[in-house]
Simulated scan of single mutants.
Amino acid sequence: MFFEHSNAIWTAHPDLAATALYADGITAHADDVITDAITRFSAVAETRLASSSEGELPEIRAWRRTFSQMGLKPTQYRCASEALLRRFKKEGALPRIHPLIDLCNALSLAYAIPIAVFDASAITDHLRVRHATGDEEYLTFSGDVEHPYPDEVIFADGAGRAHARRWTNRQSGYSAVRETTTSALIVAEAMHETARADVENLAGDLEAELVAAWSVTPEAATLSAGSPRLTVLAPAPADASTSAHPDTR
């Protein structure tokens, strides 16, 4: 399996910085281990939000500009990290879903960078961030099937499934992490001025926490137009009948 952004995405968005990690050996039983990490990363977000709103953060401003460039109203369709920050500011904490999701959500809060987490067993052949043809199928968390609009930026696999719509806005229920997940593909993307350094630091923090919680050293890559692909040995795709699970993004 491989992950990459299409050439058209790199051309249209030269400020993009991204990192991808593949982790095998994940379980749903690491809550106690990651609690400290969640507390630490949430505290970073709390400090940042004490001096400015989420919409004023450079990471969020950059994604709002990107959404506007794609023809989307940025206050209607928010990037995942902005949505998390808004919920965190309102409720003071995020709901616990799965240890890996909880960890990535906390990192997303701290860095204000969208992080997508996919059950790798639900991905066929590859996952590519590209423009949609309109024929792809997207499974909602309520079980409905949608088709992305032509030219919408999606995460698409080799079977024509859209695993995320509107780029960093919403993941699909088809590949969401669940209790039986053992392997995950994790992607962080940013557009702001210090994006490359920040996604590299985020990846370093994530790798350290994966080692601490699951004794897993992920395969990882910082992606660019000149080096756009992470290739890994991943499990065979899961049967579609077992792949609808709770929201992560």
Rank of each mutant, 00 (worst) to 15 (best):
E4K: 14
H5L: 15
A8Q: 13
W10A: 01
W10M: 02
A12R: 12
D15R: 12
A20E: 03
L21G: 02
A23P: 09
A23F: 08
A28F: 10
A30Q: 15
D31F: 13
D31T: 11
T35R: 15
I38Q: 10
R40V: 12
A43C: 03
V44W: 11
A45I: 05
A45S: 07
T47V: 04
G55N: 14
R64D: 15
S68T: 14
M70F: 14
P74Q: 04
T75C: 03
C79T: 02
A80N: 09
R87K: 13
F88M: 03
K89E: 15
G92N: 08
L94V: 04
P95M: 05
I101V: 14
D102C: 03
D102H: 05
L107Y: 03
L109M: 05
A112P: 01
I113W: 01
I115E: 00
V117T: 11
V117F: 02
D119E: 13
S121E: 08
T124S: 13
V129A: 07
H131L: 12
A132D: 09
A132I: 09
G134A: 09
S142I: 03
P150H: 09
D151G: 01
D157M: 11
G158W: 12
A164H: 11
R165M: 12
R165A: 05
W167R: 07
N169K: 05
S172C: 11
S172Q: 07
Y174H: 15
S175N: 04
V177W: 06
T181Q: 07
T182R: 15
S183T: 15
I186Q: 02
E189D: 07
H192E: 09
E193Q: 10
T194G: 09
R196A: 13
N201W: 02
L202T: 01
D205I: 00
E209A: 06
W214P: 07
T222R: 07
G226F: 09
R229W: 06
R229M: 14
P235F: 04
A236I: 06
A236M: 11
P237I: 04
P246R: 06
T248W: 13
R249F: 13
